[in-house]
Amino acid sequence: MNEKKINETSKNIFLIETSCKGYLDLRQLCAVKSAARAHPDWQINLLFVGPVTHEKLTTGILSSLQAYENVVIARVYLSQIVKDTPLERVLTENLLETSEYRYAHVSDIIRLLLLWKFGGVYMDLDIVVLKPFDDLGPDFAGLDAPNSVNTAVMGFKVYSEETFYPISAQHWREYFQPGVFNVKRFSKSHTVHVLNSLSHVIKDRTIKPWTLYANMAKMFCPPIYSVNPESLSEQ
């Protein structure tokens, strides 16, 4: 990653693909496009831990991001991002090798150091942005339950559940059940979190066009929805 390309005004949004699969599925692409759409004057930094081929960038669904002038795609190297930081010893002393949750910890390290170095906002790739972050200030995170802070969207000030996670993790299935986007219900929400880590267990992996998630995608990342609502299933 060329750190000189990072926006120096702190108007950065960072999204990180850590599985090393070398592409995004449509649900992840919806996260990027909804962020770019809501923040035309912010830089949306889509970072891959693993390599991405030229073919994927230029002919696959990633190529559709070329239409967004505020989206930057780059590869991030753990060895580079930890250099000269308080977390450098995690890598130099091979502490990750003994971690039971190695990949989750790599993701945590990268997201925290990006915010520590550059400021801005980190968000997971299973987030849909409903409205801009401009009014949140520089430091925030959000509760997803009365006693649980979620780091799927953060900049270090803690906001109430309704700000980022209006539907709690316990009720994630509601996104994939019949529903319409109720403006009043989500009026105080900047994002929703559809929890790919849990929703992948759905036996019928297709996303029906009458579900709450599909209706949100239709409104907030319409280019993705228009491809085929059912293809929004996590790949």
Rank of each mutant, 00 (worst) to 15 (best):
V76N: 14
D41A: 11
H54T: 14
T85A: 15
H54A: 12
L57N: 11
N70W: 00
K56F: 00
Q80H: 11
I73N: 12
G50R: 01
R37G: 11
L78S: 01
N70S: 08
P86V: 07
I81K: 08
V52G: 01
I81W: 08
V71H: 01
S64M: 05
W42A: 14
G60H: 04
Y77V: 02
P40H: 02
V49D: 13
H39F: 05
S64F: 06
S79C: 14
S64E: 15
I73F: 03
E93G: 11
N45T: 04
L65P: 00
V49I: 15
P86Q: 06
W42F: 04
L78Q: 02
I61S: 05
R75W: 02
L96Y: 03
A74G: 13
E93I: 08
S64H: 09
I61G: 10
Y77L: 13
N70M: 02
A74E: 10
D84F: 15
L62Y: 05
E88H: 15
S79G: 11
V49C: 08
G60T: 02
L57C: 07
Q43F: 10
L91F: 01
G50Y: 04
V72R: 07
L57W: 11
I73P: 05
P51C: 01
I44F: 05
Y77N: 11
T92P: 12
G50V: 05
L78A: 04
I61M: 06
L57P: 13
I73K: 01
A38Q: 13
K56P: 13
S79Y: 01
V90K: 12
A67L: 06
V72Q: 09
H54G: 09
D84M: 10
E93H: 14
R75V: 04
S63C: 05
L47K: 06
G50P: 02
A67S: 11
Q66H: 14
L87N: 10
L46Q: 05
Y77G: 14
A36W: 00
F48Y: 15
A38Y: 09
P86M: 10
P40F: 10
I61D: 06
T53S: 08
